[in-house]
Amino acid sequence: MNICVFLSAADLDERYTAPAREFAELLGKGGHTLVWGGSDVGLMKVVADGVQDAGGRLVGVSVKFLSAKARDGVDEMIVAKDLAERKALMLAKSDVVVIMVGGTGTLDEATEILELKKHGLHTKPVVLLNTAGFYDGLKQQFRRMDAEGFLPVPLTDLVFFAEDGVAALAYLEETAGIQ
């Protein structure tokens, strides 16, 4: 399965890196391909290392202004002209989407992917990996949007909130019908 992962390129503490490493190892051991932002820094590096070390494939989609931070030694590296093209390429190259911890860039990616799904422009399963309760506030906001009629489709049809990598991967394998 080609698994798109949107996540931070920041250097983070063990609350975030340890679960990310565990999830990455699950992906690699499962023979999956990581489709990610292509950077060899921060949490992006942690996940890419984990997938590659466990035998998975790496497909990076960098962007021109970040190409100096792109990882070497990947199975495929694409350099997009801008962030919009990068998101589109990452979605096109994946079977499923996982949103891990991150800043405003990751939040932008998450909301665009969910907006596209809401409008039926893709039907790929989307998991929001809520490591260490990072997305509790966003989860609450989405539930409020759903309850108050702001979402034309049920929240459960848009995104699955997983508390750990095992639950995330199990959901993806079940819903995508891919092993």
Results as ranks from 00 to 15, higher is better:
Asn2Gln: 13
Ile3Ser: 05
Val5Ile: 15
Phe6His: 08
Ser8Ile: 04
Ser8Met: 07
Asp11Met: 04
Asp13Met: 02
Tyr16Gly: 02
Tyr16Met: 03
Tyr16Trp: 09
Tyr16His: 06
Thr17Ala: 09
Thr17Asp: 05
Pro19Tyr: 03
Arg21Thr: 07
Glu22Thr: 13
Glu22Gly: 09
Ala24Ile: 07
Gly28Ser: 08
Thr33Asp: 03
Trp36Thr: 07
Ser39Thr: 12
Gly42Ser: 03
Lys45His: 11
Gln52Asp: 11
Asp53Lys: 14
Gly55Ala: 01
Gly56Met: 02
Gly56Phe: 01
Arg57Leu: 03
Val59Ile: 15
Val61Trp: 00
Val63Asp: 00
Val63His: 00
Lys64Cys: 06
Ser67Gly: 10
Ser67Gln: 15
Ala68Phe: 14
Arg71Trp: 03
Gly73Ser: 10
Ile78Leu: 13
Val79Pro: 07
Ala84Asn: 11
Lys87Pro: 15
Met90Ile: 07
Met90Asp: 00
Met90Gln: 04
Met90Tyr: 00
Met90Trp: 01
Ala92Leu: 05
Met100Leu: 08
Met100Glu: 07
Val101Gln: 08
Val101Ser: 09
Gly102Trp: 00
Thr104Gln: 12
Asp108Ile: 07
Glu109Gly: 12
Glu109Ile: 11
Ala110Met: 15
Glu112Thr: 15
Leu114Ile: 11
Leu116Ala: 12
Lys118Asn: 13
Lys118Arg: 14
His119Thr: 13
Leu121Ile: 13
His122Met: 09
Val126Asp: 03
Val127Arg: 01
Leu128Ser: 08
Leu129Asp: 09
Asn130Lys: 13
Asn130Trp: 06
Thr131Asp: 02
Leu138Met: 14
Leu138Pro: 11
Gln140Lys: 15
Gln140Cys: 13
Gln141Glu: 06
Phe142Asn: 08
Phe142Pro: 09
Met145Leu: 12
Glu148Trp: 13
Gly149Tyr: 11
Phe150Ala: 15
Phe150Ser: 14
Val153Phe: 07
Pro154Leu: 05
Leu158Ser: 08
Val159His: 02
Phe160Ala: 05
Phe161Asp: 04
Phe161Pro: 08
Glu163His: 08
Glu163Lys: 11
Glu163Phe: 04
Glu163Val: 06
Asp164Gln: 06
Ala167Arg: 06
Ala168Phe: 11
Leu169Ala: 09
Leu169Trp: 09
Ala170Gln: 09
Glu173Ile: 04
Glu174Gln: 13
Glu174His: 12
Gly177Trp: 02
Gln179Trp: 04
